[in-house]
Write a protein that binds this DNA or RNA. Structure first.
Length: 886
RNA sequence: GGGUGAUUAGCUCAGUUGGUUAGAGCGCUACGUUGACAUCGUAGAGGUCACUGGUUCGAGUCCAGUAUCUCCCA
């Protein structure tokens, strides 16, 4: 390759397509067969089939890909198992919306036709998000891609349902659900939108049966009085204790209802008496259960009052009924008062109708028996959460676990495998439609109309995707998997349930580690959402700055599971970094043309900077390994960013230039060329998990010049640190040089000397080692601080007309040529003196404090003393300089 | 209402078992086209660590309370 053909800025589009195709052709993402090495496995949280890639997916899948690629490089057979979720309600809604545009609705179409339409849609457009994940660089094993409605997964769903039913852990019962009377359908919790509204609070009198008194209850929905079956008070409430167990007259109905005691009642709210309507309020439903109260449904599925409400109200719309109830109460002097009241009201997300809590037949899973083992495995540490604090959230939910309502009144999903005999209504739960009714010998059946909650297929993901209930090779090999990476919002919905199901049906944990990451927000902290329009399209970003830049920015900005604040500035971090790497590569290639016969590593003529960069490289290798393994991906990113940008580019490459351009020693030139290629190549491997495309591109191209086997692949190994190359003495010397260069640059700045002007420096060192160091490497000062002439010695003193700085115990004096602004300089020094004095006082006070000297650890005290000496030296120098200025 | 977490520079965040002059990136200011990179370089300014009390020789760090906010569940 002609080096000058390499473009000045990094152009990702071409190379991303090229290398993804290359990886696919070579089956990189398929775990190696025939090996005894324990594989590394990650299950994807399956995105919705309707989904298009958003920033949340980018974060989630980038983190997974980084980890998977890291373990692949460690030589493990690695499986990232991908798939898509059928997302019952969301998908059906989307297709129904399309129908609506054509003036159709599902009732006209019928169930079979609608389901057929959705499948058709899935085949045509459903897997768009999969293509987008590929653009992001995700290294999933696409040959194992699953869909929650696949035959394989449906089999598992039926198997589990039937098995839990037979064990008595699935049952049919009554439950309060959110019901939209206009759409005539049940709504999931997340389909109900809550708004705070100004409503009214009606205070109603319920007369006592024995005695003259009454209690007052407050309600926002007076029509539900008709369905009351009790009044509840708090057992500790002195005001009402005498009423517990007594009866009240329920207004307008002629019924008598008891007073019950329940902890749920808030003594401080309203009058402390609560009317209980078990069939029309979720909290009342729970109270009703505890006290075995009747559940009276007083309206029908359209929100029209029924016969149970009483003949005066039957047939009335719910709000008309509300008005009539209020009128009648007032007429009977049972209305104590009416207040305005702000409260939260649930609305149908589709039609905005006020939802009605509604009692209906539903299917449940009894969760308590499944929860016990799931608690144990987290307590014992078999399953760990990162960050750890989520363990508490998980435990809290598990200890208060409730039965899971798994039926949904929609059409898209796994239909409940329960069949009813048309002749005698006998119910049979079975994997297939039965032939004969065991009770009446009838032979015609209808299947339950409901489908299962989408999570009922997702919770089986760890083994349903691997072919269970068959004992497949994949099951034996890949379960338990290793790390699950997901958002904390679905700890309950998904993570906990997978732990329970996998323990129940496989007897093992599904994964040993759960990594929870934050939410992607916009610059002002809002969640990214379609409706706010604050979510950029990741594909646009990839097309403009590249997947690597996006990936790096995401990884870099997601510390310890905290939220990610997406902004253009944040994206620039990755874009600039990719460009920086690209230009370092470009520079190296420009100078690498003739590096044909490189010297063997042990024949290299290495000097300070060379030994230093190798030493640092080894440390960075170890650190990055530790970070990747501890799942601190942002730390891995930061550590590599800092090494490549600051240490390799800003220091090493800059120092290498002298030898490349000016040295007439061929051995020196060869050494530096070798090291540039070697460090670059190693750094590309370190960074490959985070930025796979650019690192592969550079790897492949450097490989042609660098002495390594032609077939060696970037993924073939994650570098291992060679501790023999770590040299702390060298590191210390280099640090001194670096600090010195910074100090000299500062001196320049202080007197406003242009960085281009050449200067003379007197360096007073305090020992021979330092003397040798500065004699030998004054070229470094020349290159990076434009020190034209350096006088080094142990006995030198401050030259006239100079300003000084101290680094450790080395004094630097920059020779001035009479260009200094005396007044400004004095002011600056005065300010510095003030700061030093303050610090000095603090240390002296500390050391004068007997308590400190006696109680603190010896090393802390020693450190304090050393500091005192250092600060004193600085102060003396400063004083001298101030005197010099007159 | 129950639970959980947070509060450090203009912004986003580090700060490991209490022990430097509380750090980084971005932004801002000044200067700079030094033969990879202006998507760059060098330097600078900027903080009562939310508030109140406590423990300690010593608190951003530990404890209690207050305030404000986040998220999950109801």
């Amino acid at each position: 390759m002609e080096p000058m053909d390499i473009s000045k800025t990094f152009d990702p589009t071409q190379i991303e397509k090229k290398w993804y195709a290359y990886w696919m052709e070579r089956h990189y993402f398929v775990p190696a067969e025939e090996t005894d090495i324990k594989p590394f496995t990650i299950l994807i949280p399956p995105p919705n089939v309707t989904g298009i890639l958003h920033m949340g997916h980018v974060l989630n899948n980038t983190l997974q890909d980084v980890i998977v690629r890291y373990y692949r490089m460690l030589g493990k057979p690695t499986l990232w198992l991908p798939g898509v979720d059928h997302a019952g309600i969301a998908t059906q809604n989307m297709v129904e919306k399309q129908l609506a545009d054509q003036g159709l609705d599902r009732h006209i179409l019928g169930r079979d036709k609608l389901v057929e339409l959705i499948w058709q849609w899935k085949h045509e457009k459903g897997d768009r998000i999969i293509e987008q994940l590929k653009q992001l660089g995700c290294s999933c094993d696409w040959s194992r891609q699953r869909f929650t409605m696949d035959e394989m997964l449906s089999r598992a769903v039926k198997e589990v349902f039937v098995s839990l039913y037979e064990e008595g852990l699935i049952y049919k019962g009554k439950y309060i659900i959110n019901w939209c009377p206009r759409c005539v359908t049940a709504l999931a919790n997340d389909e109900v939108e809550h708004d705070d509204e100004d409503g009214k609070l009606w205070h109603i009198r319920y007369p006592e049966v024995d005695g003259e008194g009454h209690v007052v209850v407050a309600t926002t929905r007076p029509e539900t009085v008709l369905g009351d079956t009790a009044v509840a008070v708090n057992p500790r409430d002195e005001r009402y204790r005498h009423l517990i167990g007594k009866d009240l007259h329920l207004p307008l109905t002629g019924r008598r209802i008891p007073v019950v005691s329940d902890d749920y009642v808030d003594m401080g709210f309203g009058t402390g008496c609560v009317k209980v309507t078990p069939a029309h309020d979720p909290n009342d439903f729970e109270i009703g259960r505890r006290h075995d109260l009747p559940q009276l449904l007083v309206m029908d599925e359209h929100g029209i009052m029924n016969a149970t409400a009483g003949h005066e109200f039957e047939g009335m719309e719910r709000y008309a009924c509300r008005r009539k109830v209020v009128e009648m109460l007032a007429a009977q002097d049972l209305l104590e008062k009416v207040e305005t009241h702000k409260h939260s009201v649930g609305h149908c997300y589709r039609c905005d109708t006020v939802i009605e809590p509604y009692l209906s037949d539903q299917w449940f899973v009894a969760m308590k028996p499944l929860g016990e083992r799931a608690i144990e495995v987290v307590e014992s540490g078999e399953v760990k959460f990162y960050p750890e604090r989520w363990t508490k959230v998980y435990m809290h939910w598990m200890h208060n676990i409730r039965d899971w309502c798994i039926s949904r009144q929609i059409w898209w999903g796994h239909r409940i495998p329960a069949y009813y005999c048309l002749a005698c209504d006998h119910m049979i739960v079975a994997k297939k439609m039965p032939h004969t009714c065991p009770r009446c010998q009838g032979s015609s059946f209808r299947q339950d109309e409901d489908v299962l909650d989408t999570w009922f297929s997702s919770w089986l993901w760890p083994f349903s995707t691997m072919g269970w209930p068959d004992e497949t090779e994949d099951l034996k090999r890949f379960l338990p998997t290793d790390v699950l990476i997901t958002a904390p919002e679905i700890i309950y919905l998904w993570v906990a349930r997978m732990i329970m199901s996998t323990l129940k049906f496989r007897g093992v944990i599904p994964f040993h580690t759960v990594l929870l990451h934050g939410t992607v927000r916009d610059e002002i902290g809002r969640k990214m959402s379609k409706s706010l329009g604050n979510s950029p399209d990741p594909i646009d970003i990839i097309e403009s700055v590249g997947a690597d830049a996006l990936r790096f920015s995401m990884v870099f900005s997601t510390p310890k599971g905290a939220d990610v604040f997406y902004s253009d500035a944040m994206l620039e971090t990755g874009r600039n970094f990719a460009n920086k790497i690209w230009n370092a590569y470009r520079f190296i290639m420009m100078n690498a043309e003739q590096v044909a016969g490189l010297p063997a590593k042990d024949k290299l003529v290495m000097e300070l900077a060379d030994r230093w960069i190798y030493s640092r490289l080894q440390q960075v290798i170890s650190e990055s390994r530790e970070h990747y393994e501890a799942l601190r991906l942002n730390d891995a990113g930061q550590c590599l960013f800092q090494f490549i940008w600051d240490e390799f580019c800003s220091w090493y490459i800059e120092l290498a230039k002298d030898r490349l351009y000016q040295s007439d020693d061929a051995g020196k030139r060869l050494t530096v060329k070798y090291i540039l290629l070697d460090v670059m190549q190693t750094a590309m491997r370190l960074l490959h998990p985070i930025m796979p495309f650019i690192t592969e591109e550079i790897w492949q191209s450097v490989k042609m010049l660098f002495p390594m086997p032609e077939e060696s692949l970037i993924i073939a190994a994650y570098p291992e640190a060679d501790s023999s190359l770590i040299d702390l003495a060298i590191a210390d010397e280099m640090a001194l040089v670096q600090e010195s260069i910074t100090a000299i640059r500062n001196l320049r700045k202080q007197v406003n000397l242009s960085p281009a002007s050449e200067i003379e420096i007197t360096i007073k060192v305090s020992d021979d080692r330092q003397n040798r160091l500065f004699q030998q490497y004054h070229a470094y000062l020349n290159k990076l601080a434009r020190v034209n002439q350096a006088y080094v010695g142990t006995t030198l003193s401050k030259p006239p007309q100079s300003i000084g700085a101290v680094v450790r115990n080395v004094e630097f004096y920059m020779h001035l040529s009479g260009l200094v602004d005396i007044v400004a300089e004095k002011e600056r020094l005065g300010k510095q003196m003030e700061k030093l004095t303050k610090e000095l006082t603090a240390i002296q006070n500390k050391l004068a404090n007997d308590n400190f000297v006696q109680h603190a650890k010896a090393e802390v005290v020693d450190k304090e003393r050393a500091k005192l000496a250092e600060v004193n030296t600085k102060a003396n120098l400063l004083r001298q300089q101030m005197e010099n200025l007159g």
